[in-house]
Simulated assay, not measured.
Amino acid sequence: MPRLNRIIETSLYVEDLDRAARFYEAVLGLEALLKLERLYVYDVGGANVLLVFKRGASAEDMAMPNGLIPGHDASGRIHVCFAISAEELVAWETRLAEHHIAIEGRVDWPAGGKSVYFRDTDGNMLELATPGMWRIY
């Protein structure tokens, strides 16, 4: 059977791209790779890409010079988890507090990992997790 190697892109959908950009850039420190009218693209750790779409703007198919991207969109409480080192957990909690971001939940995983949960400006559930959460992480 062919094998999947990793997830390259993850998408979130927001009402206001500029408001979302302030959050993802100022609070999480992500670097924008591309900013378009319907989509902002962020580098996550030099290995993954976070696509932040304006809600509804990608619902229709998009013709590209060499192909077609089928329409997609989402709403509701979407979840994304970011990997962090165990040594940086307290620094991240401090950073969130400095930006008045409430931590809504915490989990100590059986294998030793820890997670904190909080929301972005559109209500998407974000998680920061240290190693020891899953067998593979």
Rank of each mutant, 00 (worst) to 15 (best):
L12M: 10
F82W: 04
N124F: 00
C81S: 14
E88T: 15
E93N: 04
L12K: 13
N5I: 02
P131V: 10
W134T: 15
N124G: 05
G46L: 02
N48P: 00
W134N: 15
R38V: 10
G105L: 00
I7A: 05
V14K: 12
R106E: 13
L30D: 10
L39S: 04
A21K: 10
L17G: 07
T130L: 12
L4C: 08
V44D: 06
R95H: 08
V116W: 03
N124S: 12
I101A: 05
A59S: 14
A26I: 02
N66M: 00
R55D: 10
W109A: 03
L89E: 05
N48L: 08
L50Q: 05
V116M: 02
A83E: 09
V41N: 04
R19A: 14
Y117N: 02
M62F: 07
A63W: 02
L17C: 10
A83K: 13
F23W: 07
D43A: 13
E37H: 06
D16A: 11
D18Q: 14
R6T: 10
G112L: 02
Y137T: 14
K114E: 00
V44E: 05
A59R: 05
F23N: 08
Y13G: 02
T130P: 01
I8N: 15
E25N: 06
V90A: 15
L28W: 08
H100W: 00
F118D: 02
L12N: 13
V52Y: 11
S85R: 09
S75I: 00
N66C: 05
W134E: 14
L126S: 11
R106I: 00
T121R: 03
I136T: 09
A97Y: 10
G112V: 01
R38G: 02
Y137I: 09
Y117K: 05
R55H: 05
K54N: 01
P2Q: 05
L12H: 12
R55C: 05
R77P: 12
D18F: 11
E31S: 15
R6I: 06
G105N: 12
E87A: 15
L36F: 06
I101N: 07
Y117P: 02
G112M: 01
K114G: 00
G56D: 09
L126M: 11
A32H: 03
I103W: 05
H72V: 03
C81K: 04
E9C: 04
E87H: 10
Y40S: 06
L89W: 09
R77A: 08
T10Q: 04
V27P: 13
A32M: 14
R6N: 08
D108Q: 14
A63K: 08
H100D: 11
